[in-house]
Design a protein around this nucleic acid. Sequence first.
DNA 1: ATTATTGTATTAAGTGATTAATACAATAAT
DNA 2: ATTATTGTATTAATCACTTAATACAATAAT
Lengths: 117, 117
Amino acid sequence: MDWVFTDDRPIWQQLSQQLTRRILTGVYPPGSKLPPVRELAAQAGVNPNTMQRALAQLEQSGLAEANRTAGRLVTEDLQAIERARREQARQIIADYLRAMEELGYSFDQAAALLKEE
Amino acid sequence: MDWVFTDDRPIWQQLSQQLTRRILTGVYPPGSKLPPVRELAAQAGVNPNTMQRALAQLEQSGLAEANRTAGRLVTEDLQAIERARREQARQIIADYLRAMEELGYSFDQAAALLKEE
DNA sequence: ATTATTGTATTAAGTGATTAATACAATAAT
DNA sequence: ATTATTGTATTAATCACTTAATACAATAAT
């Protein structure tokens, strides 16, 4: 999977999402060592700082941990990974329901409309 | 319903949404005349231009039509209102599914998780 | 015909976020 | 002890977006 970006939202968010995706799908397995910031940045063709921000986000989600010079490790805690995924999902779902309610749709309607797609 | 804002997204979007809400819920019934830009702006305590932008968005959605000096009328086309609502919903749903897919959830999973909330 | 009321366009100021440049800090490896 | 490798902090440049100030345009009302 290569790095690809659109311009409709910040690079660092897209980086973060793609990194997350890789962890969730096992490209970077639990306990494995992530490439150094600078290398990832080079791969993706972005400034190291941008990648750093994406990685900080990953940290925030509990998917990885940084050690000064030993590099950055994907958490070994499978449950943490699953928790992180669910947490993100929770937020997305909340946003969805909020948006639909603003249009005047009830929860049930919001759920029903989803199926019609 | 009074005008109330948060600072997590642009005023004009919030204005637009609240105006939409009012039309969808019949506060401004089909065919009725909306207050002038300047008056709405004064009510909401925002710059007229900001309100103008919100109203332009309303136009875009097909919920209202502007006439030079006769003011702005809510569309009389009930179907147009319903269409506008559905269109917005469609976008929201698409965003939702996209976000969930980025987390590795299938469509079915995305639908199922919704119900668990 | 004039005026008041309305919507619109233009331009600039303000604001915040993203990205980049650079320097610093910690520690594993030697 | 030194060095190379890694993560982090700081600062500044860039950019886009929001908001505001102001002027213009159209037309209903008189």
